[in-house]
Design a protein around this nucleic acid. Structure first.
Lengths: 347, 347
DNA sequence: GAATCTGCTTAAAACGTTTTAAGTTGCGTC
DNA sequence: GACGCAACTTAAAACGTTTTAAGCAGATTC
């Protein structure tokens, strides 16, 4: 097994007639190097085709300029969009991304994933797994203290944890209020699995808006589905069987709204004339559903960018002071996108 | 700036009363360690809360057990699905993923990205950026030789390059043949940007099938769009204005097919009675379009898994022999999914 | 009972950087 | 002409592992 000799900073130093330390200074710019030396060094670098070794640098710096991202459900629009935002901001700030996927949101492999991130000495972690069931039970002050800074996406506030999330409750309230405003009075909701925190928040937003308007928000108007279009189709069927007089449905994502639309087409319910439908997420396709879907827009990429910025801030500050960085929370506001499926006149 | 002393393999060794080398042996299992010693070592590890440092290990091993993934368009279904496949297989084989995103498929930052991957000493690279324009012009034997093994996704065969891709031409032929089989005779195509290699392949498949059946495949039947639903809507409009007698359209992805469906709804063209529509990709939503979309399924996650397997093979082999590993190509076959929008009886 | 073998164990030398503390210049001051 | 200073440079010591080559028991062989 032959090995082509790698060219190191030492070779460069020799060729340029200086010491390795000086080459390092020229490369990192952390200390001044005279123009002539600098010039000689860079000539040597190109002549030798030197490629710096970030692994070695990480070892001595004890920092890898890497952010670990733990995510779930990347094949869906929301998570993948957020990941794009994370990557953009990370790249802008000079970090690389180490990606770890959980295969179930309530996976028990959490410890293994954390150990790997620690072993690789990531500078910080973005936890982009939705809060489902007790999949956050591992979080406690002691465990967090043993980790680099962590930013959690979309989770219930918890002492000691930094969180960035969308205001799901407000989003659902906007959607529901819109339905009320256009005159709907019997408004059902198709939820995702109630083990998801986001779902409980949206449910609260829905019932809050209804309650404030003096309208009913009882269990028969609520049905749980599993985020897929298929489950949305089944759900609206059940809902309409239970309450044939329902005149509007708020679906907790666009896919389920699509399933609901399909059910209505197949069963002669006109949307929006007989029934208004509103979704959540504003997937790019939703504007081209038939009818075009009224929905709630989350700023997904922004969510990722904000998380990285906050993480960066915490990484820097932890390096400077020995006191723990106080956690912060940021909440992003969603907005209502009115299209055809709700029946309002598009302005 | 205080520094909590990190516990190293040396501390473990001291506590267990052995040398660091032995601890390493116990940890990696590369050399035998007697049961008693082993036991003592692991006790010391848990007592001290030792966490191995993969950075140091990478430095001496000259291998980081990391795969660099360069991707584009993660917010779309295809790329993100493929990434999931990549991650799964990589995790199974013990690799971590370093993710780099290009913000445009024809980005010129290629060299910077490659330099970073080299600097971080990834063991291999998966190039998951679609072939667009001349964005692969950097590929040549000399450059490839200076890199760790690379697997390219979805690109035109090139000497010296290992490639994994879907057989786009066959996919388009399947779709078109299906339209012919159900009696359509004037079949248009909505392409993505013709700078994309995949698009040219699909176009070739479409015209091949038509030619074989003695049907027309002239330029007026071809229109270029940009993958979005909106562009699909515009495209079919133009197509129908040019050729009002068109009775079928093959759209190069499901989003554009959705736009086409919407146009038909809005303009009183019945699908599939007046016009058949077929898409490409089999996005999860496509089964819930109205009417449900006939489409071509790509095995996207499988694509990613196959790529990682092949990359792994090449990494291993390069380590063993000094001769360059011969490149290989793998082509995955897509399949036709018949639903309602084409008008065939679902079997 | 010497020689050989087997199975662990170890000291020391990498791996490729950065950083620390100690020079070394040359230059202006008093 | 000694001194202090500014501006670079440098030798050597980390950083936390793995690996190499040698060493050391005890068992086996002749």
């Amino acid at each position: 097994m032959e090995r082509k000799p790698t060219v190191t900073i030492i070779d460069v130093a020799q060729r340029a007639g200086v010491s390795p330390g000086t080459v390092s200074n020229a490369l990192t710019g952390k200390r001044p190097v005279s123009p002539e030396t600098r010039e000689r060094i860079f000539r040597a670098i190109t002549e030798l085709g030197y490629q710096p070794n970030l692994v070695a640098r990480s070892l001595v710096n004890r920092s890898s300029k890497t952010i670990g991202v733990v995510a779930f459900g990347l094949e869906f629009y929301g998570p993948s969009r957020t990941l794009v935002g994370i990557e953009q901001q990370a790249a802008d700030l000079g970090y690389s991304l180490l990606l770890d996927l959980l295969h179930r949101p309530d996976s028990k492999d959490v410890e293994a994933v954390l150990d790997e991130l620690i072993a690789r000495r990531v500078d910080g972690i973005i936890w982009a797994v939705h809060e489902v069931g007790d999949n956050r039970s591992w979080i406690n002050e002691r465990r967090l203290h043993s980790l680099p800074p962590v930013i959690f996406l979309t989770m219930e506030p918890r002492p000691g944890a930094s969180i960035v999330s969308t205001d799901n409750r407000t989003g659902a309230r906007l959607a529901t209020q819109h339905l009320i405003d256009i005159g709907r009075r019997n408004i059902g909701i198709i939820c995702g699995p109630s083990s998801w925190w986001e779902v409980r928040e949206r449910l609260a937003g829905w019932s809050g808006a209804l309650g404030a308007a003096g309208l009913e928000s009882s269990p028969p108007l609520i049905i749980e589905a599993n985020w897929t279009a298929r489950s949305g189709e089944d759900a609206i069927k059940t809902l309409l069987e239970r309450r044939p007089n329902i005149d509007a449905v708020f679906a907790c994502n666009d896919q389920m709204a699509l399933g609901a639309l399909r059910y209505c087409h197949a069963n002669g319910r006109r949307v929006p004339d007989d029934l208004s439908i509103v979704g959540f997420d504003n997937t790019p396709e939703s504007a081209y559903f038939w009818p075009a879907l009224t929905t709630v827009r989350q700023h997904l990429a922004e969510l990722g960018r904000v998380a990285v910025n906050e993480l960066h801030r915490q990484i820097e500050r932890r390096g400077q002071s020995k006191y723990p960085v106080p956690p912060v929370s940021r909440v992003l506001q969603p907005e209502l996108i009115v299209r055809e499926s709700s029946g309002a006149k598009p302005e």
